[in-house]
Simulated assay, not measured.
Amino acid sequence: MKTKFTVFLLLQLILISCSSAISTAKKEYKITKASQFKSHCDLNEWFLKKDTLIGHGVPLHWGVMESKKRLPKNYEIDFKVNMIEESLFEIMLNLNKGKYIRTYLYQIDQNIVIGDGVYDKKDDSYGKRGGKTLFRKPMQLENNKWYNVKIKVLNNQLFFSVDNKTTLECSLEKSNLSQKGKLGFITNGEVKITDLAIKSL
């Protein structure tokens, strides 16, 4: 059952806005007003409607949202996602200087994936967004179905699971993946996100 405070966003409230990180140890933040949400992230093709974050993109122009502050060194992200249209929903982790960790649900291959990503916000061309796959695990994925996503980065170890049953993990150091940076979301269709909670560990 949803409550009016189901959206827990990754960004700090004004009380600690002088920090460069998205959250502080052992804290989560609730943002229930679109104006607060917009002040803490670059929405681009995403918007907040009541308790739901909605993204829009197309295959030739992915809809991207990125935070203005970086993730803490150790963190946990939980949310529910529904891919309404098209085939790709991606969580950009540790986005820094055009490099990031790709954690995503991909319907065409029917996999969840961890990969090494690149992102050029000014260029939609092939090779300027996305990147190579490092780890994958088969999972049946459908449009118009809600999935529970959990991501944890702890001591440079990444854990990525969907519905608490399909799980991938890897070492950021051994896989030469970005170890600090911001958070973002990407879609090539329409995606809805609810119950988003981000906290430091």
Rank of each mutant, 00 (worst) to 15 (best):
M1D: 11
M1A: 06
V7R: 11
Q12Y: 06
Q12F: 05
Q12S: 10
L13S: 13
S19Y: 02
A21M: 06
S23R: 08
S23C: 14
S23T: 15
T24C: 10
A25V: 14
K27R: 15
Y29D: 06
T32L: 15
Q36P: 05
K38L: 15
C41Y: 09
D42C: 10
L43W: 06
N44E: 14
K49G: 09
T52I: 08
I54L: 06
G55H: 05
G55K: 12
H56E: 12
H56A: 14
G57I: 07
V58R: 09
H61M: 13
W62V: 05
V64N: 12
M65G: 01
K69H: 05
L71V: 10
N74W: 03
N74T: 12
V81E: 01
V81Y: 01
M83A: 05
E85K: 14
S87T: 08
L88D: 00
F89P: 01
F89I: 06
F89C: 04
F89N: 02
F89W: 04
M92Q: 07
N94Y: 03
L95I: 13
N96T: 07
K97T: 07
K99Q: 09
I101P: 00
Q107T: 08
Q107L: 13
I112W: 00
D116Y: 12
G117Q: 08
Y119C: 02
K122H: 14
D123T: 15
G127I: 11
K128A: 09
K132C: 02
L134P: 04
K137Q: 13
P138Y: 02
M139W: 00
L141Y: 01
L141P: 00
Y147Q: 00
V149L: 02
K150D: 09
I151D: 04
I151V: 11
L154I: 03
Q157Y: 12
L158T: 09
F159E: 15
S161A: 10
D163F: 02
E169T: 13
C170K: 01
L172T: 06
E173C: 01
K174M: 05
S175H: 05
S175F: 04
N176A: 08
G181C: 08
G184Q: 07
F185T: 03
I186Q: 03
N188F: 11
I193E: 08
D195N: 15
L196C: 14
L196P: 12
I198L: 13
K199G: 15
S200C: 13
S200R: 09
S200T: 14
S200L: 03
L201E: 11
